[in-house]
Write a protein that binds this DNA or RNA. Structure first.
Length: 274
DNA sequence: AGCGCAACCTGGAAGC
DNA sequence: TGCTTCCAGGTTGCGC
């Protein structure tokens, strides 16, 4: 499940190999994964030259000469891989043929993800991106802390809320809460300035470490070249229910918060006072 | 505002 | 072996 670090790694990889390439063909293998009909989407990108690839929140953005942009939301199982031309695979959803004969393929087993295209300037009007909160790696922890200390909701829910802070999913929410010693059910306003600052400092640290390790490969994440990441080997809590805490050996516990499984250490992350 | 829950999907794992 | 059920989770939308 690509979160911020995984999408960032994909974007950096694609930026290196895709910049300067021209989109010379589009194969809408599964048109239901397009945000609009192929008849209107394809003309926005066909013949366009790629100027760069970047990430905003968990969305992958391919910019083109003239200001058009191709956007991919990978959701749970989506992947975008650039490589040699090959036959259509079972999970291929949209395929882009480039001027050097290579293939940019959006594949997604579970069909949650989607592709959209925006004409010049159109990206700014995309409601999804307009509502997304600040980038955690490009924002001062003081500013980020200010966005949760006045809220009454559970901190785990706030971290997952893309309008509060962009790009955080279940893995990095759990990992940063563990590092900060904060229970996932703690309310935003009871974190205190110091607690919130500590949390976002740890969030930045864990995101940077995950990017440096090429992201986390669980289920089927791969980067733009099809390679797995390594950060899953560094998980302290995610997916480790029942295993001993690395810090204190207490068995890690799992509870539901905001409808998601939250794994934490009952001793290092004590229950908030009600 | 916050929270719970269903829906969207598929495949792997666990239970019977 | 073969069936059913559960679970994974990003996002939206609905109701309380």
């Amino acid at each position: 499940m690509p979160e911020l670090p995984e999408v960032e790694v994909i974007a950096r990889g694609l930026c290196a190999t895709l910049t300067g390439r021209v989109i010379s063909g589009v194969e809408p293998v599964d048109p239901t994964r397009l945000s609009e009909g192929a008849a209107t989407l394809v003309p926005k990108v066909l013949g366009a030259t790629v100027t760069g690839v970047r990430r905003r929140a968990k969305v992958l953005l391919v910019d083109m000469v003239g200001g058009a942009t191709l956007a991919f939301h990978l959701k749970m199982t989506g992947r975008v891989v650039h490589g040699p031309m090959r036959p259509v695979d079972r999970h291929d959803r949209t395929r882009f043929i480039l001027d050097d004969g290579s293939l940019l393929c959006f594949a997604d087993m579970r069909r949650f993800g989607y592709v959209c295209a925006f004409g010049p300037g159109g990206l700014a009007g995309w409601n999804f991106l307009r509502r997304v909160g600040p980038e955690p790696l490009e924002t001062d922890p003081v500013t980020l802390a200010g966005r949760v200390v006045s809220r009454t909701g559970r901190i785990k829910a706030l971290l997952l809320d893309q309008t509060v802070v962009a790009g955080v999913g279940n893995i990095y929410a759990d990992e940063s809460l563990f590092r900060a010693g904060i229970h996932p059910r703690t309310r935003g306003h009871s974190l205190g300035r110091a607690g919130a600052l500590r949390l976002f400092a740890h969030l930045q640290e864990v995101l940077l470490q995950a990017i440096a390790e090429n992201g986390s490969s669980i289920r089927n994440y791969v980067n733009a070249s099809g390679d797995a990441g390594a950060f899953q080997n560094s998980f302290a809590v995610y997916g480790r229910q029942g295993l001993p805490c690395a810090a204190c050996k207490t068995p890690l516990a799992a509870i539901k918060v905001a409808g998601r499984t939250s794994t934490y250490c009952p001793r290092c992350q004590p229950e908030p006072r009600p």
